[in-house]
Amino acid sequence: MNLSQEVITRCEFRARLGISEEMLNSLLSKCSVFSLGCGNENSFPAVLSEPQHDRRRLFSLCRIIRPAPPSARLSFLTSGHGALRGKSPVEALISKRQFCLVREIASAWASEWSRTIVTVCIGAHSTAPVQAPAYVAIDEVDPRRCVWARAAGAMQYGGYVTPDAPYPYARRATAFITRKSAGCSKETVDAKLDIAILGRVCFASIHLRERSPARYRLVLSADRLDVVEVLGEIVGVMRRESLEKRRKHAREASGQVQGRHFDVKISFWMF
């Protein structure tokens, strides 16, 4: 069923949750809750503060649907869904089994609000040229995912690819990985790749948003690959490297936590 989309003031919202202004700002920064409107007069969905709902699950759900505009998020949370037998996502939070289903539905829905676009142009370019690109792949995917995972998804499983193969062979190419939100005409460039191909050796200068350029030398899997195949191999290498970095970071973080626990135990036994 559809729930009320009533909104309340910031002060009332904070009072219902029983939290401080600092805690509310923390929840907002993590997108665990969201407001409607702008400035100091913004209002909050009352449904996020109602005590009968599992707030831990509800706040987790809010973080998943963050890519969508606030008004769309409220509509999603309070509207009935066929996959939930007419229940709204908020109503389905009671059951752990249904909560898992709600998370899947929310992830798929959130992905629809952002598109990742992979564009390949022949030659060296500082910005996307006016002429038609050699290759374009588009996929609806959560923008919070790693840029290389999003690019790989667009190239391998993208819902829209143009033109069809075969693709050209070239010694120089430029690839742009951009992101575009629904209802917004502007694209955000997440990565730009300057590619030079010499036989089975590829040199790639990779410019990630807000990072210094990095240069890579790759040995390709075959002597003669078209520009799309070359880009696919570069993206695959970068995706594996990114995954390994995240795993290493997770291991280090886990080691630090275990180390702190160990120190506490030693201190206990010393005293």
Results as ranks from 00 to 15, higher is better:
Thr9His: 09
Pro70Arg: 08
Pro69Arg: 05
His125Leu: 12
Gly86Asn: 06
Lys180Ala: 13
Gly158Asn: 00
Leu93Gln: 02
Val230Glu: 00
Gly86Thr: 10
Glu21Arg: 09
Val136Leu: 06
Pro70Met: 14
Ile177Gln: 02
Lys245Gly: 00
Glu104Met: 10
Ser71Gln: 08
Ile206Ser: 05
Val47Pro: 03
Arg115Leu: 11
Phe262Pro: 02
Asp194Leu: 14
His53Trp: 15
Tyr167Gly: 01
Thr178Gly: 09
Leu74Asp: 02
Ala83Leu: 14
Arg115Phe: 05
Ile122Arg: 06
Ala214Trp: 04
Ala173Phe: 04
Gly159Gln: 05
Lys30Pro: 05
Thr119Tyr: 05
Glu21Cys: 12
His125Ile: 14
Ala128Gln: 14
Arg251Cys: 01
Ala214Lys: 12
Trp113Cys: 05
Asp194Tyr: 06
Leu27Asn: 06
Thr119Glu: 08
Arg240Ser: 10
Asn2Lys: 13
Ile206Arg: 02
Leu101Ala: 12
His81Tyr: 08
Phe76Lys: 05
Met23Gln: 15
Val201Trp: 07
Asp226Leu: 02
Val237Arg: 02
Glu244Gly: 00
Ser79Asp: 10
Phe268Gln: 13
Phe99Glu: 03
Pro51Arg: 07
Ala222Glu: 13
Val235Ser: 01
His125Pro: 07
Leu74Thr: 04
Asp139Thr: 12
Tyr135Ile: 00
Arg73Gln: 12
Val219His: 07
Asp194Gly: 13
Ile105Glu: 03
Lys96Thr: 08
Ser49Cys: 13
Val228Cys: 00
Thr78Cys: 12
Ser71Gly: 07
Asn2Cys: 08
Ile105Ser: 03
Lys96Glu: 08
Thr162Ser: 01
Ser221Gly: 08
Gly80Met: 03
Arg56Trp: 10
Ser205Phe: 06
Ser107Pro: 03
Ile19His: 03
Ser212Pro: 05
Arg239Gln: 15
Glu41Asp: 13
Met270Ser: 14
Ile94Thr: 11
Ser205Met: 13
Ser88Glu: 04
Met23Ser: 11
Ala68Met: 11
Ile138Glu: 04
Ala165His: 01
Leu3Gln: 02
Asp164Trp: 00
Ala175Asn: 04
Gln5Met: 13
Pro143Ser: 11
Ser20Met: 09
Asp139Phe: 03
Val230Phe: 00
Ala108Pro: 04
Glu140Tyr: 10
His125Asn: 13
Pro168Asn: 07
Phe203Thr: 15
Ser185His: 12
Ser32Gln: 15
Cys31Met: 10
Asp263Leu: 13
Cys100Asn: 11
Ser126Tyr: 13
Val228Arg: 00
Ala132Thr: 15
Ser43Arg: 11
Ser79Ala: 14
Thr119Pro: 04
Pro69Tyr: 05
Ile138Cys: 07
Ala151Trp: 01
Glu22Met: 11
Gly159Phe: 01
Arg211Trp: 09
Tyr160Val: 04
Ala253Gly: 03
Arg150Gly: 06
Ile177Asp: 00
